[in-house]
């Protein structure tokens, strides 16, 4: 077994409930199960896509995996370390192994910080790098994501959405992670920018063997990047497997209706797909 194929991220039985109503005594009377018994594995250098409609629990899963929320049950194991069992400071040190890129590039960068400080934060926090050494390394990172050293001292408001997402990616890379969790990382971008950012992610994966947990509602996008696909519906994993298998011969009705919702440009492909959809009841189709 080669090391390139080892499991870097393993989620087992993740469950999360949110209290939606409390009685006068503050006791929970109504709960919403956002994620229930979700398990998956991600191998080094591979991309696992978590797909589903909005409200299916994808983003909550991302937050559970990255330890931004505590799961009610289940474990998360990153590179052999069980994150869910770590103490606070140990978890903080481990966090550099898995970094996150968020959906909204307008909200994920601190508006009061220059790019050099935003991207340099992981360097400062994990390695204590500051000053000119920091400037140099941040400039390198910016070049890796297609920006340049001349952007070091700019503020987020001076950048477009696509550029901001590149900054967010540079920040994630700064920690030197094995895994990047991309929560709808390209959904907020326009289509041409989307393609550029996706290509950037793929290039980075090829160059440095990063594993991606790619969360998206957009199966068209997922198709371009994913090795494996896991489909979520109402907080559960309904189907998972190699991407080609899921796209070519989906087993679950929900997966089929999800696939049917992808806009298709080519007329021949449309006809092809028409045959596919007829089996699933139209009432199940989700927008």
């Amino acid at each position: 077994m080669s090391t390139a194929r080892e499991v870097v991220l393993r989620a087992t039985g993740l469950t999360k409930r949110f209290t939606t109503r409390r009685n006068v005594l503050g006791r929970a009377v109504e709960r919403l199960t956002a994620v229930e018994d979700v398990s998956f594995e991600l191998r080094a250098g591979k991309t696992l896509a978590l797909v589903g409609e909005s409200g299916s629990g994808k983003s909550t899963t991302a937050r559970l995996v990255t330890a931004l929320e505590k799961p009610d049950a289940g474990t998360v194991e990153v590179c052999g370390t069980e994150w869910t069992a770590l103490g606070r400071s140990a978890l903080r040190r481990e966090r550099r192994r898995m970094q996150m890129v968020f959906q909204d590039p307008y909200a994920s960068l601190d508006p009061t910080k220059m790019v050099v400080h935003t991207v340099g934060e992981p360097l400062l926090v994990h390695e204590g790098v500051r000053g000119q050494e920091r400037d140099r390394r941040v400039a390198d990172l910016l070049e890796r994501v297609g920006l340049s050293a001349r952007h070091l001292h700019r503020y987020p408001y001076e950048f477009s959405g696509g550029q901001r997402q590149r900054i967010a990616i540079a920040r994630a890379l700064a920690a030197g992670p094995d895994i990047i969790v991309a929560d709808e990382a390209v959904s907020a971008l326009d289509v041409s920018t989307q393609a550029q950012v996706l290509n950037l992610l793929l290039d980075l994966q090829r160059d440095s063997g990063l594993a991606f947990l790619f969360i998206s509602h957009d199966l068209g996008v997922v198709r371009q990047v994913a090795d494996h696909v896991a489909v979520m519906h109402r907080g559960r994993l309904v189907e998972s497997g190699p991407a080609d298998e899921i796209y070519e011969s989906p087993r679950e009705a929900y997966t089929k209706s999800l696939l049917a919702a992808v806009p298709e440009v080519s007329p021949s492909r449309r006809r092809e797909r028409a045959g596919l959809v007829t089996e699933s009841s139209t009432g199940e189709v989700v927008g």
Partner: peptide
């Protein structure tokens, strides 16, 4: 979100 982002970094 940038608060979550910095927490995910390990601040």
């Amino acid at each position: 979100v940038f608060i979550d982002a910095s927490r995910a970094i390990g601040c």
